[in-house]
Design a binder for these strands. Structure first.
Lengths: 192, 192
DNA sequence: AATAAATGCAAGCAAGTACTTGCATGCATA
DNA sequence: TATGCATGCAAGTACTTGCTTGCATTTATT
């Protein structure tokens, strides 16, 4: 029942369609057509439609654990925050489907919400660790409230990501590169 | 075909259900039951299901134009930003349904996306105006990049709103009052 | 009391949905 | 060449959805 090639075709089609049409709009017939596969074949590879999503969420969760494992702080706050932000946005870009489905359908699929929540958690830890080291090193002034600053940093990046992927046509949107180079820098400099 | 009372019952039921069940999950049969009204009555008041949503979006758009019309800056940046943030979050709280539907379904209903985009625009204008005055008044240092700071401010608030309403059960979430009192203050103080 | 408007009720329709089934066909491996 | 596996194909099932219709009943207005 499983040539991996077909699995991938289905997942790829599913992903592409979900971005355009949402979960419900992504019907099994459309998936089949987009994947160049018969509808019945989908159900030979996946128990049901929901399992396709499940597989994507699993990948997402597995990838989350890799985040920041080999991250080395440079000691320069501006550089460090820019790198953290870059990692964050790369991750979201590579998991757009789960990210968006989490926004749109987490009320219906609690497990996605569950998995999604790990992301800010993980990044907040990373940032808090960094901030604490920086305070000790004198790179951040001692009066700074580390927790709030870290939260603000995450919310800023999260807000930008939602804007970028949920409203691809909006105007406020800052191109990602400029956002990382300028807005994150602005934020970081405030801490010094 | 129109006693306003019934109109309101339907809209209220629709709103309540959409928050829990999303647009597609909010079936006309459920609306009827929640509103205590016969299903056919819904279609005597609204052309179709989508028109219920339309009416909410119209209200949203009308209300947006009121924002900031009578806003007077105090000259104290911390206070001003806290007030702007409060107005923002009150607005979102009063229009949760449209805000959430915009997040979830704007790919399907472009008009909602359209209406939603006015909100950050409007607020960004408000903030930029304020910032420019503050720079002249010496309340914000002249070296500050007004546009980026304003964008960051909006994204911060937006991110927090999305977190609050899209993931009501998440843990990173900062209670709104604390967010306004502390995180916004932290942000504002950086500008001085 | 008489008229008209708003609603309830019950049945139903057309279209779409996820998913199934039985069989024929192609393809690779042994 | 023969066997088995993955797929295509076509038809169909059971269910849900938005929406309609015809008629009886209530409610408000004059």
């Amino acid at each position: 029942m499983a040539t991996q090639q077909t699995d991938e075709k289905i997942i790829k089609a599913f992903s592409k369609l979900v971005l355009k049409l949402g979960y419900q709009g992504t019907t099994t017939k459309r998936i089949a057509s987009e994947a160049g596969v018969n509808e019945s074949t989908i159900f030979r590879h996946f128990k049901d439609k929901h399992s396709i999503l499940e597989q994507l969420v699993n990948t997402y969760s597995r990838d989350i654990e890799q985040i920041g494992q080999s991250f080395e702080f440079t000691g320069d706050i501006v550089q460090d925050l820019m790198r953290v932000a870059t990692i964050y946005h790369d991750f979201v870009a590579n998991h757009q489907v789960v990210f968006l489905l989490g926004l749109r359908e987490s009320y219906r699929f609690p497990e996605i919400g569950q998995a999604l929540r790990q992301l800010p958690k993980r990044f907040k830890n990373l940032v808090v660790t960094n901030f604490n080291e920086m305070v000790e090193a004198g790179e951040i002034r001692a009066t700074a409230n580390v927790t709030e600053e870290a939260t603000n940093f995450i919310l800023l990046n999260f807000g930008n990501a939602v804007f970028t992927y949920a409203y691809p046509t909006a105007r406020l949107q800052v191109p990602m590169k400029a956002f990382l180079a300028e807005n994150i820098r602005t934020f970081a400099e405030h801490l010094q």
